[in-house]
Amino acid sequence: MFYPNSPQTSPQLTQIPYGQQYAMMQRQIQQPYHPFATTEPQARLYPYHYQGPIQQEQGGFITQQSTAASPQYVQMRVTPVDQSIMSGYPNQTANGSSSSSFNYNIHPQQQQQQQQQQQQLRHHAMPVGSVPLQDDRYRKQLIVNYLAPDVTSTDLHELFSRFGELDGARIIYDKQTNMSKGYGFVYFCHAEDAKEAVERMSGYEFHGKWLKVGYSTNPLNIVPSNSSPYVHAGSRGAAG
């Protein structure tokens, strides 16, 4: 039997160049792979992502010199942007860049009308829970959420009447099932009393439920100042 490094198959040491006398086997001759043993700084910083320098080929596509990437890492192929796409944008300079302001050559009167329309939209648009300043009635009506099913309009009136005089209180019921929808409205005579009720009743436990109280901004629920107070009856038909 002959071994790869046996004296019968191995040459004389004098015939082997210096430095390879003890590297006779194939696994010894093959050098191990060192990912950080390279002179390129990109490979030292990113050993798993770097795959060699990027070269520009004919046709405008950018390719990489090395083989496919590892399945664990996804390499994105980048193509140059066609400058003709950006030619339609206004205020574009000769080098292809555009300024931040756009001039669509709008007539001054049209621009003024658009600004007025935007101001009107901001004036009428009102986020949930906010209180408008032009109508004091919005500051007097509250919406009470997360009410228990057994709470009546009379219970709601008695709960909030300790903060001040009320114009009314009612629970909203479903017309088909005649069941409470879980929320109601309270109408105060003074805005200061309503503000105190919002601050003190939010998070209050009532009939096993934690109440959420806020201003009601729905104009359909506003009680006119010259109208008669609501009837605080315990029956659902009268309260709904």
Rank of each mutant, 00 (worst) to 15 (best):
E205A: 13
K212D: 00
A23Q: 15
G214E: 02
D193A: 10
M86C: 08
G203D: 01
N103C: 12
P7G: 07
T154P: 11
L133E: 07
V128F: 12
Q56Y: 15
S235N: 07
Q55Y: 15
Q176M: 13
Q92S: 11
S66Q: 09
A23S: 07
H34A: 09
L220Y: 04
E57R: 12
E199H: 05
V131M: 14
V128P: 09
D167I: 01
Q31C: 14
Q28S: 07
P80D: 13
L147V: 10
R162Y: 12
I143K: 00
Q109R: 07
Q21R: 07
Q120D: 06
G208N: 14
H34D: 06
G88C: 06
R137K: 05
T9Y: 15
P53S: 12
I106G: 10
I172N: 00
S97E: 12
E205V: 06
H207M: 05
Y138R: 06
T152G: 06
Q83G: 09
P219F: 01
S216Y: 00
Y204P: 00
A169N: 03
E205T: 11
I62S: 10
H232S: 05
P35T: 12
I171V: 09
R77T: 12
G19I: 06
H207R: 09
F185A: 00
R236T: 03
Q117I: 09
V74K: 01
P47A: 13
P32C: 09
S87H: 05
P17G: 10
F163V: 06
G168E: 00
Y146P: 00
R236G: 03
T79D: 12
N95I: 08
T93K: 11
A43T: 13
E192R: 03
K212M: 01
Q141E: 01
L133S: 07
Q15A: 05
H124F: 12
P17Y: 14
Y173M: 10
P132D: 05
T14G: 06
Q56D: 03
I62C: 14
Y204I: 06
S6A: 09
S99M: 07
G88L: 13
S97G: 14
Y215T: 00
S216C: 00
G164C: 00
M76L: 13
A37I: 14
I172H: 00
R236K: 07
V231W: 06
Y230S: 07
C189F: 06
K175M: 04
Q8A: 05
Y33E: 02
S227N: 12
Q65H: 12
E196P: 09
V78H: 13
T154E: 08
R27E: 12
V81A: 03
M25F: 09
P4H: 13
Y204V: 03
E57Y: 15
P127E: 03
S87T: 11
S228C: 11
Y50E: 03
V144I: 14
Q115N: 10
Y89W: 12
L147D: 01
N105P: 07
D135L: 03
D150A: 06
S153P: 03
R162T: 11
D193L: 01
V186K: 00
D174L: 01
S97W: 14
L121I: 03
Q110Y: 10
S10C: 05
Y230H: 05
R137F: 07
L159A: 06
D167Q: 10
L13H: 07
A197E: 02
G52W: 14
G129M: 11
N145R: 02
A191S: 09
Q15N: 03
L133H: 14
P127F: 11
D150N: 05
T67E: 10
A191C: 06
N5I: 15
G203H: 03
T79H: 13
G96N: 04
Q56K: 02
K212V: 01
G234P: 10
H124T: 10
T93W: 15
V74A: 11
Y18C: 07
A69I: 11
V131E: 13
L166G: 03
